[in-house]
Computed example of a mutant assay.
Amino acid sequence: MKAVLCKAYGPPESLVIEEIEPLKPGKGQVVIAVKACGVNFPDTLIIQGKYQFQPPMPFSPGSEVAGVVKALGEGVEAVHIGERVIAFTLFGGFAEEALAEASQLIRIPDGIDFTTASSFVMTYGTSHYALKNRARLQPGETLLVLGAAGGVGLAAVELGKVMGACVIAAASSAEKLEVCRHYGADEVINYASEDLRERIRALTAGKGVDVVVDPVGGSYSEAALRGMAWDGRFMVIGFTAGEIPRIPLNLMLLKSCSIVGVFWGAFATRDPQRNQENLGELLSWLASGQLKPLISQKYPLNRVADALQSMLARKVTGKAVLLIDAE
Rank of each mutant, 00 (worst) to 15 (best):
I81S: 09
F120N: 02
A100G: 13
P109W: 14
F114Q: 03
T115N: 03
V85G: 01
V85S: 01
T123L: 04
V79E: 00
M122T: 05
I108T: 08
A100S: 12
P109L: 12
A95R: 12
M122S: 04
R107A: 07
L105R: 00
F91S: 13
G82R: 14
T115G: 05
I112D: 02
G93Q: 11
F114M: 04
A117I: 09
G82Q: 07
S103I: 09
T116P: 06
E101M: 12
Q104N: 14
T116I: 12
H80G: 13
I112C: 11
R107Q: 14
D110N: 14
E101H: 07
F91K: 15
G111P: 11
A102V: 15
F114W: 06
A87P: 14
R107G: 02
T115H: 01
L105W: 00
A95I: 10
M122G: 01
E96S: 04
A95E: 08
Q104F: 08
V79N: 02
M122H: 03
I81Y: 02
F94Q: 10
A87K: 10
L99C: 07
Q104I: 03
E96G: 15
S118W: 01
A95N: 08
E97N: 15
G111I: 11
I86G: 00
L90C: 08
A102P: 11
V79I: 10
E83P: 02
I108A: 02
I81V: 12
S119N: 02
P109C: 15
P109K: 14
S119V: 09
A102F: 08
A95H: 11
M122P: 02
T89A: 04
V85R: 01
T89L: 03
E83M: 13
H80T: 15
F94E: 04
V121G: 03
T116C: 04
F91H: 15
M122D: 02
R84W: 01
F94S: 08
L105Y: 00
A100Q: 07
I108E: 00
I112Y: 04
G111A: 08
F114G: 02
L90D: 11
I81A: 08
F114P: 04
V79S: 01
L99S: 05
F88Q: 02
E101G: 13
V85D: 00
I108Y: 04
E83W: 08
D110P: 15
V121P: 00
G82K: 13
F94V: 10
F88K: 02
L99W: 05
E83F: 10
L90K: 14
A95G: 09
A100F: 14
P109D: 08
V79K: 02
I108G: 02
T115C: 05
A98R: 11
F88S: 03
A87N: 07
L99I: 13
G93D: 08
F120A: 03
I86T: 04
V85I: 15
A117P: 07
A87R: 13
V79T: 05
S103V: 06
P109Q: 09
V85K: 00
V121D: 04
F88P: 00
S119M: 06
T89P: 09
A98N: 12
